Amino acid sequence: MIVRRKTRQITVGDVKVGGDAPISVQSMASTDTRDIEATVAQIAGLERAGCELIRVAVPDMEAALSLRSIRERISIPLIADIHFDSRLAVASMENGAQAIRINPGNLGGESKLARVVDAAKMHGLPIRVGVNSGSIEKDLLGTYGYPTPENPRSLIESALRNIQLLEKQGFHEIKISIKSSDTLTTIHGYRELAARTDYPLHIGVTEAGGLIGGCVKSSVALGILLFEGIGDTFRISLTRPPLEEVRVGYELLRSLQIRQRGPELISCPTCGRTPIDIFSLAEKVEEYVQTMKAPLKVAVMGCAVNGPGEAREADIGVAGGKGVGIIFKKGKLYKKVAEADLLEVFMTELKKMEDQYGREKQ
Rank of each mutant, 00 (worst) to 15 (best):
P59V: 03
K217F: 08
E47T: 03
A114G: 08
V205A: 10
G317V: 09
K293V: 14
E310H: 12
L67A: 14
E228Q: 08
V300Y: 03
G96M: 07
L281G: 00
R115C: 05
K351V: 13
S135W: 04
E52L: 01
K329C: 02
P269E: 07
D118W: 12
A221E: 01
A38I: 13
T291L: 05
L78S: 01
T206H: 10
V248A: 09
E94F: 01
A340Q: 13
I266M: 12
A208V: 00
G19P: 11
P275E: 15
D35E: 09
G317R: 05
M61I: 15
S133Q: 10
R161I: 08
L193A: 06
I203S: 08
A114R: 13
A119M: 14
L46S: 00
I327P: 09
L253T: 07
A159I: 11
G145Q: 10
D14Q: 13
A89Q: 05
T197E: 04
Y199V: 03
I278C: 11
A282Y: 04
G145V: 11
S133H: 10
L125D: 02
G213L: 09
G45S: 05
S92E: 09
S237I: 14
E173Q: 15
F234Y: 08
A21H: 04
R254K: 13
L225R: 07
P308C: 00
L226H: 12
I10W: 04
E192A: 09
R196G: 04
I203D: 00
L78C: 02
V129N: 06
R259K: 15
G358F: 15
L113A: 04
Q164N: 07
R73L: 03
A282F: 08
I100Y: 08
Y199C: 07
A99E: 13
A340T: 09
R71G: 10
I102G: 10
R128D: 06
I276A: 00
I203Q: 00
A63T: 10
Q169K: 14
I74S: 02
K352G: 05
E94D: 12
I187N: 01
K330V: 06
G45H: 13
D139M: 12
V289R: 08
L252I: 09
D14A: 10
I174S: 02
G130S: 09
A114L: 03
Q356D: 14
K329E: 15
N162T: 06
M301V: 13
P308F: 05
S75I: 13
E251H: 04
R261W: 06
Y334Q: 11
S92D: 03
N151Y: 00
I266P: 07
G325D: 07
R247Q: 11
E264F: 06
R273A: 10
T197M: 07
F328L: 07
T148V: 08
I74Y: 03
Q98N: 02
S111P: 02
R161T: 04
P152G: 03
L253R: 01
A299Q: 02
S86D: 06
E150K: 07
T233M: 02
S237H: 05
Y199I: 01
A319Y: 06
E310F: 11
L343Q: 11
P104S: 14
P263E: 12
I178A: 15
G331N: 05
